[in-house]
C-alpha cells in the first residue's frame, strides 16, 4: 500500500534529482504557483541589492583611495557635492519606489488564488510537529493527519494556520513563501503545486529545542490519486487480530493518552493522530524515514532522537515494542 503512494513521489524525485538533494532550495522556481510568481522578485531584489552593494563599495573605495590634493578647491566640492547628493537621493528614491511597487504588485497577485480553493486544510503547529485537518462541510468527511499532507496538483488549497503553544512559521520553500503561525490568531495562506512530487516544509521561526526537527512533507498527487488517498484517510482504523490485537491493547494503555486512532478509544491530542501512520513516508516530523527499524527505534527512545520532545521514553519491554509495532503497521 505504501509503495503505491510513493510512486508519484519517486517519479518526481527522479525527474528533478537536484530538487530532492536540496529540498529547501528557494533560489530556483520550484513546483508551486506562488514560488514561481515570487521567484523573479527574489532574484530581482537580490540583483538590485548586489548592484547597490557593489556600487557603494566602489564609491567608498574610490573616496578612500583618492588623494587629498585632488579634492582641493572648496567651492567645486560644494557645488558638485550637492548635485551628487541630489542625484543619489533621486535615483535611490526612484529605484526604491519602483521595487516597492513591483513587490506590492506581486504580493497582491498572490494574495488570493487565481481559482477558488479546492478545500481548506487547518494547519496546526505544535512543539514540534505539524497537524493537518482537512475541513469539510460534512463533519463525517473531516479527517486529521500529521507531518505529511497530500494535495491535488493544479488546484489551490487554502491553509488556516493555528498554533497551540508558541509562534511558529510555515514554510514550503519550493512551493510558497513563509506565513507565521501565531497562537490566538488565525492566519490564512494558500498554495498550489504545479508538478507532482514531494515538497519539504519546515518551521522557520525558532520555537524551542527541537525547532530544527519540525519539518513536514507535502505530497502533490495527480487528482485521481489524491482522491484515492483522501478516501483511504477517511477510513477508520481496521479491526485487528493476533499480535496486532495485542498491540492495540498495549497501545491503548501506553500511547492512547497522547495519540489518537480514529475508531478506537485512544483519543489523546498531545501527539500526532496515528490513524494512518503507516501510509506516511516519515515519522517524528520528517525526522526519520518510516520503516519498521526506524519506527521501533523511535518508539523505544524518542529522547535519543529528539531530546526535549514531549514524547517520553516509555521503558517498553521488547515484547510490548514488537506488539505496538505490529499494530501500527496495520494502520495503513
Amino acid at each position: 500500500m505504501r509503495s503505491r503512494a510513493a510512486i508519484p513521489a519517486l517519479l518526481a524525485l527522479s525527474g528533478s534529482a537536484q530538487a530532492a538533494n536540496r529540498p529547501l532550495d528557494y533560489l530556483k522556481p520550484g513546483g508551486g504557483l506562488i514560488a514561481r510568481e515570487i521567484w523573479p522578485l527574489l532574484w530581482g531584489l537580490l540583483g538590485v541589492g548586489i548592484v547597490v552593494v557593489v556600487l557603494i563599495s566602489a564609491l567608498v573605495l574610490v573616496g578612500a583611495l583618492r588623494r587629498r590634493g585632488e579634492a582641493a578647491g572648496a567651492g567645486l566640492i560644494e557645488t558638485h557635492a550637492s548635485r551628487w547628493i541630489g542625484i543619489g537621493v533621486g535615483v535611490s528614491t526612484v529605484v526604491l519606489f519602483g521595487l516597492v511597487g513591483w513587490s506590492t504588485a506581486i504580493t497582491a497577485r498572490i494574495a488570493t488564488p487565481p481559482t477558488p480553493s479546492a478545500f481548506t486544510v487547518e494547519v496546526r503547529a505544535h512543539q514540534w510537529w505539524w497537524e493537518f485537518t482537512y475541513l469539510n462541510d460534512n463533519p463525517q468527511k473531516v479527517f486529521t493527519t500529521a507531518n505529511e499532507m497530500h494535495l491535488p496538483v493544479g488546484r489551490p488549497v487554502r491553509f488556516l494556520l493555528k498554533s497551540d503553544d508558541v509562534i511558529h512559521s510555515c514554510w514550503v520553500p519550493t512551493l510558497s513563501g513563509k506565513t507565521d503561525v501565531i497562537p490566538g490568531q488565525n492566519n490564512v495562506a494558500w498554495l498550489q503545486a504545479e508538478r507532482p512530487g514531494t515538497y519539504r516544509g519546515q518551521c522557520s521561526e525558532y520555537c524551542g529545542k527541537q525547532h530544527a526537527h519540525m519539518a513536514f512533507a507535502i505530497v502533490a498527487d495527480p487528482p485521481e490519486l489524491f482522491e484515492r488517498w483522501r478516501a483511504r484517510q477517511l477510513r477508520p482504523a481496521p479491526a485487528t487480530s493476533g499480535e496486532a490485537a495485542q498491540g492495540a491493547q498495549v497501545f491503548g494503555m501506553r500511547c492512547g493518552i497522547c495519540h489518537r486512532v480514529r475508531g478506537g478509544l485512544a483519543q489523546g491530542r498531545l501527539g500526532p493522530d496515528l490513524t494512518h501512520v503507516t501510509s506516511r513516508q516519515t515519522i517524528a516530523a520528517a525526522t526519520l524515514p518510516n520503516d519498521p527499524a526506524h519506527l521501533s527505534a523511535w518508539i523505544a527512545s524518542p529522547q535519543h532522537f529528539k531530546p526535549g520532545a514531549y514524547m517520553p521514553d516509555l521503558g517498553l519491554s521488547g515484547q510490548e515494542l514488537s506488539e505496538i509495532r505490529s499494530y501500527l503497521t496495520t494502520l495503513e
Partner: peptide, 10 residues
C-alpha cells in the same frame, strides 16, 4: 514547563 503541558493535555 513540560509538566504544564502534560497537566493540560492529560
Amino acid at each position: 514547563q513540560r509538566g504544564m503541558r502534560y497537566f493540560i493535555s492529560f
